[in-house]
Design a protein around this nucleic acid. Structure first.
Length: 288
DNA sequence: ACTTTACCCTGTAAGC
DNA sequence: TGCTTACAGGGTAAAG
């Protein structure tokens, strides 16, 4: 389940590959619903001949800026993966979309960017300049200087919903998912069910620091791979993330809290499995 | 305007 | 062993 550190890892991999300045020669759609705005007739035609100018990340979106003002967005959702291959996917039940890139120096050499997604939740957008974009709705980038204590205080302080629910809301902070929300709340010593408006200035300050700490650590480890299954996270070159061993509570139900050895508890918040230390994150439910 | 629920999907693990 | 069922979850749309 790629969240900010995983998506950022892939974008960094992409930027290390020789893609900037190269031309999209051909697009193949293997699962039509992957297109967020189904316009199959024009999709491949609009992309043909476009030059890749930049590749970046916003929230959990991968953003390709192409010549002519076009933007391609890729959201991996739960199980999406990208890879760079020598040829089109063959007999690959999970391949959903692929692009052949023509290299300036060696046009004969084929390079194919392939999007795979067993669960079919991932989506791809093609946007003309000025078109409404899913990026418009995104909140603050948590690793940017914009995530200040006062910014977080304004966003959370007026809301009655559980702090975990608010942190998962991409219109408030862009890029956090289930793993890093649980981890950040543990680091901050905050119960996931605490209402946003119950948070005091010091709670907000700890939360802000915890979010950045957790994301930076995960990023340095190349993301989190949970270890089982094909839906697992892998980078562009198929490398797993190394952050799993550093998780404090996520998917560690009944195992000792690394801080106080109390068994980690699992509850459900916002329809998501939620992991916490009932002692370190205790008694803060009611607020005040 | 806000909050909650249903839905999209299929690999994996648990249950019989 | 083989089949069936529950579960995982990001985001959006519909419902409350």
């Amino acid at each position: 389940m790629p969240e900010l550190p995983e998506v950022e890892t892939i974008v960094r991999d992409l930027n290390e590959a020789d893609l900037i300045g190269q031309t999209i020669a051909e697009t193949r759609v293997l699962w039509a619903k992957t297109l967020a705005f189904p316009d199959l007739r024009t999709f491949a035609a609009k992309l043909k001949g476009r030059v890749i100018e930049t590749m970046a990340r916003r929230g959990k979106y991968i953003v390709f800026s192409l010549s002519g003002g076009y933007t391609v967005l890729i959201h991996l959702r739960m199980t999406g993966r990208l890879s760079l291959d020598r040829d089109w996917p063959r007999a690959d039940a999970h391949a959903r979309m692929a692009w052949r890139v023509r290299r300036k120096k060696n046009p004969a050499e084929s390079l194919v960017l392939c999007f795979r997604d067993p669960r079919k939740f991932g989506r791809v957008w093609l946007l003309d300049s000025g078109e409404p974009s899913p990026l418009d709705k995104l909140g603050v980038e948590p690793l940017s200087a914009a995530l200040t204590v006062s910014c977080l205080s304004r966003a959370l302080g007026a809301r009655g919903a559980a702090v975990k629910t608010l942190l998962l809301d991409q219109t408030i902070i862009a890029g956090l998912g289930n793993i890093y929300v649980d981890e950040a709340l543990w680091h901050a010593g905050l119960h996931p069910l605490r209402p946003g408006r119950s948070l005091k200035p010091d709670d907000i300050r700890r939360l802000r620091n915890a979010i950045r700490h957790v994301l930076q650590r995960a990023l340095r480890a190349g993301g989190t791979s949970l270890g089982t299954g094909r839906g697992n996270f892998y980078g562009l070159r198929g490398q797993p993330g190394r952050h799993l061993a550093r998780l404090k509570v996520y998917r560690r139900t009944s195992q000792p809290c690394p801080r106080c050895a109390t068994p980690v508890e699992r509850i459900v918040v916002a329809q998501r499995g939620t992991h916490l230390c009932p002692r370190c994150q205790e008694g803060r439910k009611a607020g005040s």
